[in-house]
């Protein structure tokens, strides 16, 4: 029973509550790093590492951190892990470091990571939080790679940097540029709606669920968060 429960926590992040395509979190890195498969995969793995470590740490410290100071504490923990991951990538994978650039720093303010800390890790024991982090991270990586595959194959006629010979004459550069990212993301969300019709909760608007500021936010969009959840 216990094992099944843990497994469902892990799978939850990959399919039912996929952070990118179902919860619509972490839109910035999703759109910015998916023009190449390599960049998307690197971004996904970097975020996965940070998410796993921060979820474990926040879960360990959940009884020590005072409630009123929790957001700053989470931010410091997350920023610490982001710095570690960034320094490691800079040292061992310089080409990936150049591709990701400032987006590596911006993992700190990625709403998936803060959102999971707020929604899951501060209420659940360590093992579960670690599995949740792992599942969410894998879900994030998979959706990023799926989007990047579409964009790179159609836009640059290559996959992970390897050229696809018969498509060379049919590049649609639009897909690798900024507007292409928005279009592909929009189409994928529509596709998910068609596939899961009636099963997945349809997101009709941008969700504030998981936004770390939701508790203090007074804007109309956010005060409706109960309806979306």
């Amino acid at each position: 029973m216990e094992k099944n429960n843990n497994l469902s926590v892990l799978l939850n992040g990959i399919i039912k509550e996929n952070p990118v395509l179902v919860l619509i979190l972490g839109t910035c890195p999703t759109l910015a790093t998916t023009n190449t498969v390599n960049g998307a995969f690197g971004m996904g793995i970097a975020a996965l590492c940070v998410l796993l470590c921060s979820n474990i740490f926040i879960s360990l410290l959940r009884k020590i951190i005072p409630d009123s100071m929790r957001i700053p504490c989470y931010i410091v923990i997350i920023a610490g892990f982001v710095t570690i991951v960034k320094l490691l990538i800079q040292a061992f994978l310089p080409s990936l470091y150049a591709t990701l650039g400032v987006y590596l720093d911006l993992i700190t303010v990625n709403c998936i990571i803060l959102g999971r800390a707020e929604m899951f890790a501060n209420k659940n024991p360590v093992v579960k939080s670690a599995l949740d982090g792992l599942g969410m991270g894998i879900g994030f990586t998979l959706s990023l790679c799926a989007m990047a595959t579409i964009r790179e194959v159609f836009g640059a006629a290559s996959f992970a940097g390897i050229a696809i010979p018969f498509m060379q004459d049919y590049k649609i550069e639009f897909f690798t540029k900024a507007p292409g990212g928005l279009l592909v993301y929009g189409l994928l969300i529509a596709l998910i709606y068609v596939i899961t019709k009636g099963k997945a909760p349809a997101k009709t608007s941008f969700s504030c669920q998981g936004c770390p500021n939701a508790a203090t936010c007074t804007i109309e969009t956010c005060s409706k968060k109960g309806e979306n959840a």
Partner: peptide
Amino acid sequence: PAPFKGLATTLIAACFISLAFM
């Protein structure tokens, strides 16, 4: 159309503004 309601259309509209800015 139903599948495009909400966020999907919003993103596609953002795509056109982004295209204009290019």
